[in-house]
């Protein structure tokens, strides 16, 4: 891809304060209407400011003064509200949560799945060894815990994947995660 040549300060006088203020003002207007996490807002603001600089440079190469070039660049990018609303629409479709926070709802059901599996295995091994640890009722509850945790883990996993395209699925993921508390109580009931 061809690098974009930086021609700022070349060819014509640059009223830097006024032009930079215009760019900063535009970016501030967009940023104020963004409904994104703070880090994303910063990223969008930086991208737009760089874009306006590049675009203004291109217009200067075609003979505009810096002032005209900045005005045209801003006009081409469009109304700040429209730009912000496109970002906001995109956010309402897909979740921006990434990394560990993205998979956090999976923590509880997965932990229960592992715990239930270990307890069930321990109990069955106890049975085989002829110890009194094994108890059919308790083993049944452990098995139930494992099955419920497996279903909820799958539910959370699917919801998190769906949330990549529709953020409302995050709620479903957290709902399934909270539900995992119930089978965890089973061994203590009765």
């Amino acid at each position: 891809m061809e690098p974009v040549q930086d021609v700022r300060g070349q060819g014509c006088e640059r009223d830097s304060m006024t032009d930079d203020d215009k760019i900063r003002g535009y970016v501030r207007d967009v940023r104020s209407e963004l409904q994104l996490p703070r880090s994303e807002k910063r990223r969008v603001a930086e991208e737009l400011a760089n874009h306006l600089d590049d675009s203004a440079d291109r217009h200067m190469r075609s003979g505009h003064t810096r002032k005209e070039a900045v005005d045209v660049a801003i006009a081409e990018l469009g109304d700040p509200s429209d730009v912000a609303s496109e970002f906001n629409d995109e956010t309402s479709r897909g979740s921006h949560v990434k990394g560990i926070p993205k998979w956090l709802p999976l923590a509880l059901p997965t932990f229960q799945l592992l715990l239930g599996g270990i307890l069930l295995a321990w109990s069955l091994i106890g049975d085989l060894a002829g110890s009194t640890r094994g108890n059919r009722t308790i083993q049944g509850q452990y098995l139930l815990l494992v099955i419920a945790a497996a279903i909820l883990s799958y539910g959370v996993f699917s919801s998190v994947r769906h949330a990549e395209k529709d953020s409302s699925w995050r709620w479903v993921a957290w709902f399934c995660s909270v539900l995992a508390i119930l089978p965890g109580l089973l061994p203590f009931i009765g």
């Binding site: 737009l48 874009h51 990018l77 730009v83 970002f87």
Partner: peptide, 8 residues
């Protein structure tokens, strides 16, 4: 691309 739509 409409420039305001490029980044979204």
């Amino acid at each position: 691309v409409v420039e305001g739509s490029l980044y979204p």
